[in-house]
Amino acid sequence: MTQIPDFQHQHFAHCESGVMSALLMHQGVELSEPMVFGLSGTLCFAYLPFMKFGNMPLVSYRMFPGHIVKKFPKRLGMPYCLKTYRNQAQAMDELDAHVREGRLVGLQTSAYYTTYFPPEMRFHFNAHNIIIIGKDADDYLVSDPVFDHIERIKVADLKLARFAKGLSAPKGLAHYPLGPPAGLDLPRLIKLSIKKTVRMMLYAPLPWIGIKGILLLARRVAQLANKADERYTRLFLGNVVRMQEEIGTGGGGFRFMYASFLQEAFAATGWPVLQEASARMTEAGDQWRLFALACARVVKKNPDAAAPDHIANLLRQCGETERQIYTLLKSLNRSH
């Protein structure tokens, strides 16, 4: 059995930011998961009606998968290796070499083949992230950020998971830092990342992204009242909530994580706007949870379930609160 020394497994809320935080920690850079999430500008909202996932439109509460791994090292100015493979055997051999040499490597995998998941959660979702920390005979030891202890996966299953086909196929992606970042200028990074997030959420020139996307989704939800198909309504609302609460850590969860980032950013800079925005972002997260609760009542066919108009209004409130937060954060650029 080979195992990477000095690795302490940590439990995270979201796979990609968790993997990045753990890899950085191993390099001696202490950035918490919310800091990674916030500084990489991963908070987002997207409702893409033309992209179907299980015949349901795609709803996402963060940037597309792979955003953190691909963009964040650059923003930190950290030398970083990202490698995809054509040759599956070569990919596995190189992974073994990494483990032997004690290098911590992050992998992109499909949740369908990660056998240690609850069977009900093993959807064809190709953008899960894990860290390999050792090998024991026919098993790899996996530090999966969303599980609270070390898991095991068979060599053959990991190979399948790394080379699953379909939407955002991992293509064997392996990634690891080549060294620590040159220097961490936190105030500059905080300002830059908030600026990018604000710009996207308020001004993205597309109707599906940011606040516009939330309002568009609200209109679609309101229109559900005109549809006679009860099954479709149920599955549509269920899909929105599943994307929110279950895949990674969802809308409420991502909002709370961003609020936590704003709080840490306030501690690092002392800019009072950040503290206020953090409190309001917590409020937005709570509103997203109310929305999810209302949807679940419809799905459960609860007699006091709200009408689609009412649910659409809850969504509009989420959008309005978030709009105020980003407008508040915009003032950061002028004052600092």
Partner: peptide, 16 residues
């Protein structure tokens, strides 16, 4: 840590 929210269970069971 949380051991789950009923809301996520309801929507998951529905699609299953």
């Amino acid at each position: 840590a949380t051991n789950g929210w009923e809301v996520e269970e309801v929507v998951l069971r529905d699609v299953l």
